[in-house]
């Protein structure tokens, strides 16, 4: 039998983590419990984060939007500051798992699991998210691109907890897009996903493009060549087709039991073409 500790405030959290340095932090459990059950050997002690109000805060802080790591996907999705202002994130979260999984799983859990297929991650990359970490004594903050180091690998030290994610003030994006391709619409892992932010001039010329793909590399992948191919040109099938070609070359998908690398490469590029249909 493993110990399960439910700290009610941050003081109790630090005490529990110091008393059980070997314990795993347990957020929504939707990934961790599945993995622990598949694992041989005695289960580790678990420190549950679900009762920590401090980790569930969603609020504006000095022009930034702070999303607490303990907030569930459903809570973030329903929050007016996300629903109205960050459709790229809202669409991604709406496609994550299922209603039950969204009621349980948390943003912090999705970050620390660091799956290349984590649905919240491509939007966080294009939005320029920074990850706020805290420990009993200090805090630090780093870009998501530095926090996530590889599949399942993050820059989190013993004694540290992810407090949340800071999103910079909206930079006037004309178009926010997310699409995920899976075997079915719900309860499906992404074979390929794309998050895109575009700023267009009044004439429809791309002033800035940010693109990030899921499930086509060890982490979420950007393709600066594809972004550059869109910049300064009118948004349409011609420029998007060229960007799709460049994206296909830049991404590094693998063959696995769900899809082949060549399929993923092709679909990743083709997902860009959808931007031509999107009303700005």
């Amino acid at each position: 039998m493993a110990k399960v500790i439910l700290p009610a405030d941050m003081g109790q959290l630090w005490e529990a983590m110091e008393a059980h340095p070997e314990a795993r932090l347990y957020a929504g459990g939707t990934d961790l419990l599945v993995r622990l059950r598949a694992q041989a050997g005695p289960p580790p002690a678990l420190v549950c984060l679900e009762r920590l109000e401090e980790l569930r805060i969603i609020e504006e802080r000095g022009g930034e939007l702070f999303l607490g790591a303990g907030a569930t996907h459903a809570q973030i999705l329903e929050h007016p500051k996300v629903r109205g202002r960050l459709p790229v994130l809202a669409r991604a979260l709406a496609s994550l798992g299922s209603p039950q999984v969204r009621n349980m799983g948390t943003l912090g859990g999705n970050l620390v699991t660091a799956s290349p297929a984590g649905d919240s991650l491509p939007p966080l990359y294009v939005l320029g998210a920074e990850v706020q970490l805290i420990s009993r004594k200090a805090g630090r903050r780093l870009p998501i691109t530095e926090f996530i180091k590889g599949p399942g690998r993050v820059d989190l030290n013993p004694g540290e907890v992810v407090a949340g994610v800071c999103l910079p003030k909206s930079e006037g994006w004309t178009l926010q897009h997310f699409e995920k391709v899976g075997r079915r619409d719900a309860l499906a892992i992404a074979l390929v996903s794309l998050a895109a932010l575009l700023r267009l001039s009044s004439e429809g010329v791309v002033e800035e493009a940010r693109l990030a793909w899921g499930s086509v590399g060890p982490t979420v992948m950007r393709a600066p060549q594809a972004e550059a191919a869109l910049k300064g040109r009118p948004l349409g099938l011609a420029s998007l087709g060229e960007a799709a070609e460049l994206a296909g070359q830049a991404l590094t998908p693998i063959d696995d039991l769900r899809a082949s690398a060549s399929y993923r490469r092709r679909v990743a590029g083709n997902l860009l073409l959808r931007l031509a249909e999107r009303e700005a």
Binding site: T30, G97, Q100, M104
Partner: peptide, 25 residues
């Protein structure tokens, strides 16, 4: 493993999966 919903229960009125929840919770 959280992929079928057969074990769904309501916790404080919200649908959750009882196969991915521990008694202590």
């Amino acid at each position: 493993a959280g992929e079928c919903g057969a074990c769904t229960v309501l916790v404080d009125g919200q649908a959750r999966l009882s196969c991915l929840m521990l008694a202590a919770q």
